[in-house]
């Protein structure tokens, strides 16, 4: 009886010992957790490496997902310091809720492309996807993934959104959508150009850029999330992302330099 009580007491102690450090771990000032849109999955590690060369004490963790999901997680208290969205509206909603320090800054312009491993899609127009050989077409979920929204706009502008609807497969984010294409499970996908240009993907299948006029500009915006104690490294990383050196890297991965006019912002 005594022994059993002691066992319970001991196991309770172990539980608290294991829980306590996880619950109360204080974030070191050099640690930066970034929530980033999936379109940045291949380019961001390059950018982070460049930043860590300048700030060797910085430890940077990036979590990828659809911009809409990341926004929801931040609203619900996810411990992110910086939000790199594939649009301007989601970071702006955080600004409006007073959850950020400063305004949204645009740092890149994304492009949309048709990509396929099963068919030759070079030189194809989005309207050509009506051909019966495209039985399954992957797009990102337009409800919370900006590239999905752009895909819907491009398809609508050619009047094929409705006729194609039954053939769509929706990726949770643009990364998963690209994975659908790569696995060969779909005949084509509307993907972020930046994912097709990643080192592992080049030369796989065929692709064609979708004219930028067919959809609203896919502006990528960044905001710094407000915390009780602000991290200087967050501001430093934001500055790094807007530097000309980083623009060169972004361009290598198919992003374009954002125009300076913010006339048609959300």
């Amino acid at each position: 009886m005594k022994l059993a009580a002691r066992t319970i007491f001991a196991s309770a102690l172990v539980i608290f010992a294991l829980l306590a450090p996880a619950g109360s771990r204080v974030q070191a000032a050099g640690n930066l957790t970034i929530a980033a849109a999936s379109s940045l999955r291949y380019v961001l590690p390059d950018i982070v490496r460049g930043f860590e060369r300048q700030y060797p004490q910085a430890r940077i963790e990036v979590i990828y997902g659809s911009s809409g999901k990341m926004r929801t997680q931040i609203v619900n208290g996810a411990p992110f310091d910086l939000f790199l969205s594939a649009d301007m509206a989601y970071p702006q909603s955080l600004v409006d809720q007073g959850m950020t320090t400063g305004q949204v800054q645009v740092f890149a312009l994304g492009r949309l492309a048709i990509w396929s491993l099963r068919r030759n899609v070079e030189g194809l127009d989005v309207g050509d996807l009506l051909a019966p050989s495209f039985k399954r077409i992957a797009i990102a979920n337009p409800v919370h993934a900006p590239y999905g929204l752009a895909a819907r706009q491009a398809l609508q502008s050619r009047g094929v959104w409705g006729p194609l609807y039954a053939r769509f497969v929706f990726g949770e984010n643009i990364g998963q959508t690209a994975h659908f294409v790569l696995s060969g499970a779909v005949d084509a996908g509307l993907i972020a150009f930046s994912l097709i240009l990643s080192p592992g993907m080049t030369g796989k299948g065929s692709h064609t850029l979708i004219p930028a006029e067919l959809h609203k500009p896919i502006r990528h915006g960044l905001v710094i999330i407000r915390h009780k104690t602000q991290k200087p490294v967050a501001r430093a990383f934001a500055g790094h992302l807007l530097s000309s050196a980083v623009h060169a890297i972004l361009q290598r991965y198919g992003f374009e330099k954002p125009e300076l006019s913010h006339a048609d912002q959300p």
Partner: peptide, 11 residues
């Protein structure tokens, strides 16, 4: 701190 997105929350 609240418990969403934390290890304690997962437990």
């Amino acid at each position: 701190r609240h418990l969403a997105f934390s290890f304690t929350g997962l437990v």
